[in-house]
């Protein structure tokens, strides 16, 4: 028996099983892409809202930091101008500590603001990562859908096979015709050869 026909006999049942995806599942698979589009839109809106809220919190915190820093400078001015006890006036250590504290307060304020900027950037980056992830999930679904829909290519054959009372009957029918097919073997072998190449 020609090698090509052996493949045909064993290949048919395999193809039948591969093409068994119900149309409802295929439709759901395609619909799932639309669901992902909606999910992407929802996450996008949520991300915008989160970033907006985070930006507002950041601005409010920065305003409080500025206010606190200014308040401290005013306190030190008041201390030096009005509140310093006579025993402390002109004392080098007190003057030094005052200057150091003013500097420290400014440094803490700058560090706190930088922290807020860093956190906001991290929130933006993470929300972008989440958006990219869902987008990638959509791409996964598109790939799966392409596979499911590609089975349509084999459906015509399957339909014809399934229209027979049984696959066994179909196979025995073809088997009975085998003596007549020798003329077509050469032509078929080229196609089946190409088939094997794509299979690898």
């Amino acid at each position: 028996m020609p090698k090509g026909f052996l493949w045909l006999f064993f290949g048919l049942p395999l193809l039948v099983s591969a093409c068994g995806t119900p149309p409802e599942v295929k439709a759901l698979s395609t619909a799932q892409i639309g669901y992902f589009n909606l999910a992407i839109e929802v996450v996008q809106k949520q991300s915008e809202a989160l970033i907006l809220a985070a930006d507002t919190i950041k601005k409010q915190a920065e305003a409080r930091i500025d206010e606190k820093e200014k308040g401290q400078l005013a306190n030190f001015e008041d201390l030096l101008a009005n509140k310093m006890p006579a025993t402390q006036v002109g004392k080098r250590s007190t003057a030094k500590e005052t200057v150091e504290r003013i500097t420290q307060t400014s440094q803490k304020a700058a560090a706190a603001k930088a922290n807020l900027v860093g956190d906001l950037e991290e929130i933006k980056q993470k929300t972008e990562d989440i958006r990219a992830y869902i987008e990638q999930m959509k791409q996964v679904q598109i790939a799966l859908d392409a596979y499911l829909q590609s089975e349509q290519a084999g459906e015509k054959v399957v339909k014809e096979i399934l229209s027979q009372p049984s696959t066994e009957q179909f196979l025995s029918f073809v088997d009975g015709l085998l003596p007549k097919v020798s003329g077509a073997v050469n032509e078929l072998s080229g196609l089946i050869g190409g088939l094997a190449e794509t299979k690898g």
């Binding site: 985070a54 919190i57 950041k58 409010q60 915190a61 920065e62 409080r64 930091i65 606190k68 820093e69 308040g71 401290q72 306190n75 030190f76 008041d78 201390l79 509140k83 310093m84 006890p85 402390q88 007190t94 500590e97 005052t98 504290r101 420290q104 307060t105 803490k108 304020a109 560090a111 706190a112 603001k113 930088a114 922290n115 807020l116 956190d119 906001l120 929130i123």
Partner: peptide, 22 residues
């Protein structure tokens, strides 16, 4: 000046807390 210095310690803590707002 201890009072002003102590209040400054507290203010610096508050500034750090504000930096943790997010």
């Amino acid at each position: 000046p201890d009072k002003t210095f102590k209040l400054n310690d507290i203010a610096q803590l508050e500034i750090e807390l504000q930096g943790m707002a997010l």
